[in-house]
Amino acid sequence: MKWMQFLTPAKSIDFNETESYISQHPGEEITILDVRQPSEYQESHIPGATLIPLPQLSDRLEELDPEKPTLVY
């Protein structure tokens, strides 16, 4: 079992840090990942966000680039 996946904490960043991070990086160099349900995404999402609902995430990881910084909400 890969315990690391349970133990590695992701750093939390607030709104100001997120907005600044997104504005300082070209869109193609980062991933903004929306893990909510499609109806929530449809109502409102951060521009450029990729939708992969949390229940599907483990099966769809190959759609994402692990080398890119990934901002998750």
């Binding site: 996946q5 939390s12 709104f15 692990p66 998750v72």
Partner: peptide, 14 residues
């Protein structure tokens, strides 16, 4: 989940 799957920099948008 992502951090343990080889994603190098993962940030949680608080």
């Amino acid at each position: 989940m992502l951090a343990g799957k080889g994603f190098k920099r993962v940030f949680n948008v608080a």
